[in-house]
Measured scan of single mutants.
Amino acid sequence: MDVFMKGLSKAKEGVVAAAEKTKQGVAEAAGKTKEGVLYVGSKTKEGVVHGVATVAEKTKEQVTNVGGAVVTGVTAVAQKTVEGAGSIAAATGFVKKDQLGKNEEGAPQEGILEDMPVDPDNEAYEMPSEEGYQDYEPEA
């Protein structure tokens, strides 16, 4: 019985440690998101679009440190934060509304985080759909 109880105690310690790591990862992701939003706020009209992409990228980098179902929630929060940063930029006159959601080359930025393969159960990952990809044929 002692062996059984000791095993359960060790398992509990492992769960607590994993929860603490997840909590730490979420806190880091939130900190990076805040950094990115402050970065966007300090940019001029020309830099705002690039700044919004930076927020998304920093958040995406930190999301990889967070495991399990938390990833889905962090990704949703990050996307809403990026959308909010863009709205703030438009409201303050840093950028025109028609410039939001495009990178410096004018290509749409939507789907940055949505296409990231995420499995809350950590069982399997699927690649994003290939609808947006084109076949590449090298020139002879």
Rank of each mutant, 00 (worst) to 15 (best):
T59L: 04
Y133M: 13
D2Q: 11
S9I: 13
D115P: 10
A124K: 10
V55L: 09
Q79P: 02
P138Q: 13
E126G: 05
D121P: 15
V49T: 14
F4A: 02
A90I: 12
A89R: 11
G73M: 03
K97R: 07
A53Q: 02
E61N: 02
E104P: 15
K32M: 03
E83D: 08
L113V: 02
E35N: 14
K60M: 05
D135I: 09
P120T: 03
D119K: 12
G84Q: 14
E61S: 11
P117V: 12
K32F: 13
E46S: 07
N65M: 05
V63D: 02
G67L: 07
K60Y: 12
Y133D: 12
V26G: 01
A140I: 05
K10I: 11
P108N: 10
G73Q: 11
V70P: 01
E131Y: 12
E139I: 08
K96C: 13
K43M: 03
E105D: 12
K23R: 11
E139Q: 13
T59I: 15
T81A: 15
D121I: 10
T22I: 00
A27Q: 12
G132R: 05
Y133N: 09
Q109S: 07
K23D: 00
L100D: 14
E57D: 04
G73E: 05
A89G: 07
G101C: 03
V77F: 15
V15C: 03
T44H: 04
S87K: 04
P138G: 07
K102W: 08
N122L: 13
M127I: 10
K6H: 09
S42E: 14
E123F: 04
K45H: 07
S42A: 11
E57K: 14
V52H: 01
E83S: 09
A85I: 12
E13M: 00
V37D: 00
P128K: 09
T33F: 03
F94W: 05
V3N: 09
T92F: 15
D135P: 07
Q79D: 05
T44E: 00
I112R: 09
A30C: 05
S9C: 05
A17T: 01
A107S: 04
Q62F: 10
K10Y: 10
K23F: 11
E83F: 12
K58L: 05
K97A: 15
Y125G: 12
P108E: 10
V37H: 00
V15S: 00
G93H: 10
T44Y: 13
Y39S: 09
Y39F: 14
T44F: 08
E126N: 14
V15E: 00
L38I: 04
A11Q: 00
E20G: 04
P138H: 06
V63T: 04
S9V: 02
P138M: 12
G73Y: 01
Q24K: 10
E139V: 08
Y136M: 13
E139G: 15
V82F: 11
K32S: 09
V118W: 05
K12L: 06
Q134F: 03
K12Q: 01
K21N: 03
A27G: 04
Q24R: 09
Q62T: 11
S129M: 10
V55P: 01
E61V: 03
K58T: 13
A85P: 04
E104N: 08
G25Y: 14
P128Y: 14
E13S: 06
G47E: 02
V52A: 08
V16D: 01
G86N: 12
G14W: 09
A11G: 02
